[in-house]
Design a protein around this nucleic acid. Structure first.
Lengths: 195, 195, 195, 195
DNA sequence: TATGAATGAGGATTCATTCAT
DNA sequence: CATGAATGAATCCTCATTCAT
């Protein structure tokens, strides 16, 4: 499953289109025109338009797993791990804003089972890692135990998602990095045991 | 801006299609066929396909304002108001699952400024009401003041959104009502001052 | 299943194209252009390109059944019925040469089960009627009994088909009517008991 | 016109595809994939896709000429020669069912004059040989003279063609060999002078 | 108030073929 | 002898919308 240069270019361009104009504008014509090749040429590199999206999701999925794993495995405190979770995602989204468009727009994929599956996979992986961090924190007595673990996770991820969604609807118009750091602080405060 | 019966029927059917098959399947053909009228007939009642969506959003916007206003104005405690916020939304979404599809899929409207505006209006209205409730709670010394108001709001709304999103991706497959109540409890715990 | 004027026009034009240029040239573009309408217009009248072909086959199927029934029911001698079978088909093919292109080119439909079914239906109906005629003739002692009924039918239909096929490959370049009459005479001679 | 191994492989594979999926599925892509080479590679061995079909027809043409010549030259009785004609063809078609698909689907080639010519050549060669056999039989007083020679030929070949066509539409689902033998018997009976 | 007929623009995809390597 | 990359032309089909009736 190695990705050729052309494939990467196609994926990047697709991501760019999604970021700038939304998924609805991601047509084979727009895609090929922007790359500077013919439409049929796309089919030399991907079987389908769907396959392009799947590859993109797969790509992010890998990134996600790696990053989350690094965070989990680091010897930070649980609180720091949560802050790092926010930070790394913010960095990524700022670098490639489209990623957020793809990742947080599940609805769009509804018609395509393959995509839904990919999406769900990514989401539950993230959830799993976050739970892991939180569990650790609870065990260490640093995070609150009066609230079900799953709710801690939902609050954490929900806040992150909402922030990113607003940033996107805002046309990437504010400093996600900074806002993310601030929000992370608050989330940690709310998730931690009271001092 | 009175809505005729036919208009209501069109909106309801549109909502149904969105709920069952996703926004991408909301075509004039599908819509008219399901109602049992011809495609051009739709244009007797709405100027545009867009106008239908705007009307739907407007419709929800009104509901939203009314409900939130009732909650804010009630003489419940701030904590109860938050719980009520979750409850009323859950009730609504269970009654009309499509609403959630429309409300939480902002990405889809990206191409249509009118829709984005409608959406943003609804979102900031909700945010405003929630802030109001939280402010009140902070003033009363019942909600925590160590975290910026806006972050309290983001955590609250973010959690609610994430729950509903999962419910939707899950094909409405779990008891949103019950889960929502449980989550509300946890959110309240995290948002309130420690006992 | 009443056929509108437009539908008939589409069918006729499709038949014409098939006759003149072969089935491979029957594209939605060619069809619409020749009628003088847009491609999408076709889809107002038929769900599919396939549906057009099915309608054509169905149309012929009806004609076939009626004609064959008339022949079978008439009070001609079995020999005359066979001659009439040849004659009526020749008349029809001369009137609408395309019919023969459609009817005797089964291979073309191979990919589409619906069409194969239609075709097979027509073929076996014809076979049935012919057998009926032959049976009658055998019972009356006028047709030979030393050869299995099915073989009499195959020889009869096979000869007719081959004649028409040649006429078609010959670009309709000889007098099918006359040749058909002559061939019918010979077939009758071979199928009848020797004098 | 020597055929290389690769060319033979390409022809065989083309024949296989035609047999299994019909001529319409014979695409350069399908062909190359099935052989395990790239599409352009085909063009090293044949100038055209058309050239492949021409070669196939040519190939069969040679076989046809040889076989028919052998039959004509043998010292069988005319009746036996007809039976042998059926038998040899049946053997060949059973060995390579695609041959029948190619041979009896003239319609498909309509657009390509080269192919039509090949086809017509084959057909008239066959017709010629058959006439030769029949003539011989008539001269010997064993075959009927009350019917024009050409009609004897048409009945003979028409019956054979129809049998094979049915076998093909039937997805090669019955024992062509046996049926062919039976049919040959009947045809001989009808073509011979009455005892 | 409704519709039957039509359409321009665009959708994803397939095809046989070419060319530089 | 082979291929990876590319393509122009074409394929069937869908969409939101319009217009005369």
């Amino acid at each position: 499953m190695n990705i050729t240069d052309r494939q990467q270019e196609i994926m990047d361009t697709a991501i760019a289109i999604i970021a700038e104009e939304g998924i609805q504008k991601l047509t084979t014509k727009a895609l090929s025109r922007r790359i500077g090749i013919s439409e049929p040429a796309l089919y030399r590199h991907f079987e389908n338009k769907l396959a392009i999206l799947v590859a993109i999701l797969e790509h992010f999925s890998q990134w996600s797993r790696i990053v989350l794993w690094e965070i989990v495995e680091s010897d930070r405190s649980p609180e720091d791990k949560i802050r790092e979770l926010f930070r790394r995602h913010a960095v990524r989204f700022v670098e490639s804003p489209a990623t957020s468009a793809v990742l947080f727009s599940e609805e769009i994929f509804k018609n395509h089972p393959e995509l839904v599956q990919s999406m769900t996979g990514i989401m539950s992986a993230a959830e799993g890692f976050v739970r892991h961090i939180l569990e650790e924190g609870i065990a260490a007595g640093r995070l609150r135990a009066d609230v079900p673990l799953e709710h801690l996770a939902m609050v954490t991820l929900g806040a992150l998602r909402l922030l990113v969604t607003r940033w996107r609807l805002n046309d990437y118009g504010f400093d996600l990095q900074a806002e993310s750091d601030r929000l992370a602080g608050s989330v940690v405060a709310m998730v931690a045991v009271s001092p």
